[in-house]
């Protein structure tokens, strides 16, 4: 971690934060529709993991995908247009928030069914292995996916075939609305994969330098063709499972604690303490992100709604 890295990560995190806060407003005013899942409070993981990757590395995400797509380099104006259902959206308005894809930047896609992305990531990792490429696949998933059968099927195969894939679990302690202790007797996801013998670790997702370091070690090994690895990041989603969730299951005390451990605030403090940035520069990073998001909203609003006829054109590849 140095000044350049920290500044880069702060930029990404602020872009995600501003994007998602803007989406909250747009959802309330019905300019974004459907089901929206936000990662506010968890931006550090997306920024630190994707910040280390190249465009030709593959990332898979789930329903809570905005941050991963932004951090992987997907253009925010086209992401915003997608959320607003416009023809210039990354998926031309056919996918929406839960199904973002930007293949050009290696964001291979988000899937709407919990854990459905895990076997897909294995396929991509196998491709890289067969091509003897130094490309790495990263798959993000939540703690809720760990209890799904395809998680175990994927873990066994990845371990057996030693695939260059890094499983990144964002363990926010809730599978949708249910806490982890109601889902499993094993608290840490990294312990669930213990029988399979590959390298794994658990870090605090709010500690961005720790995520950066831990992921970096796995990434270097995976570039050399080793794998799999599992990085568990303990995070907290500061908003509900989805926008509109009444969150009756939430613990107010934990919420306060996590607000204090906000990854953006923490990394900003660290950068100030180290003298990497001053207050003015910190404010500028936030302001730049805000302006970029406003520009993205303008872009999206100007984009027309898609021609309905494209629905029929895109069912089969031609």
């Amino acid at each position: 971690m140095d000044a350049d890295v920290a500044i880069g990560l702060l930029r990404t995190m602020w872009r995600i934060r501003c994007f998602e806060e803007r989406v909250v407003q747009l959802k309330r005013s019905l300019q974004v529709h459907g089901l929206i899942h936000l990662s506010i409070g968890g931006e550090g993981v997306a920024a630190a993991v994707c910040g280390r990757l190249r465009d030709d590395d593959a990332v898979y995400s789930g329903h809570r995908a905005h941050g991963h797509a932004i951090a992987k380099g997907a253009p925010i104006d086209r992401l915003m247009a997608e959320l607003m259902g416009r023809s210039d959206g990354v998926c031309r308005g056919l996918g929406g928030s839960m199904h973002l894809v930007d293949a050009e930047h290696g964001f291979m896609g988000a899937t709407g069914v919990v854990g459905g992305n895990l076997p897909l990531a294995l396929g991509t990792a196998l491709t890289h292995h067969l091509q003897e490429a130094d490309r790495v696949t990263v798959v993000f998933f939540g703690d809720g996916a760990v209890q799904a059968g395809h998680f175990n099927e994927s873990i066994n195969l990845a371990a057996l075939w030693r695939l260059p894939v890094i499983f990144v679990c964002e363990n926010n302690g809730f599978a949708e609305f249910t806490s982890r202790e109601e889902h499993s007797t094993i608290e840490r996801v990294s312990d669930v994969v213990a029988p399979y013998g590959f390298e794994r670790t658990t870090v605090k997702g709010s500690d961005v330098p720790a995520v950066w370091e831990a992921f970096g070690g796995f990434l270097d090994a995976a570039r050399g063709g080793e794998g799999p690895f599992l990085l568990e990041c303990l995070t907290y989603r500061r908003r509900g499972h989805y926008e509109g969730d009444q969150q009756k299951y939430r613990d107010a005390a934990a919420e306060q604690e996590w607000a204090e451990r906000d990854p953006v605030a923490q990394l900003t403090r660290r950068a100030l303490d180290e003298g990497w940035i001053d207050d003015e520069a910190a404010a500028a990073i936030e302001a730049e992100a805000g302006e970029a998001i406003e520009e993205a909203v303008r872009f999206a609003r100007e984009s027309p709604f898609p021609e309905p006829a494209i629905t029929a054109e895109l069912v089969y590849a031609r």
């Binding site: 308005g93 056919l94 895109l314």
Partner: peptide, 11 residues
């Protein structure tokens, strides 16, 4: 129609 249901409202 014989398509996957699209996201965008008009479609």
């Amino acid at each position: 129609l014989d398509v996957t249901v699209p996201y965008s409202e008009p479609m």
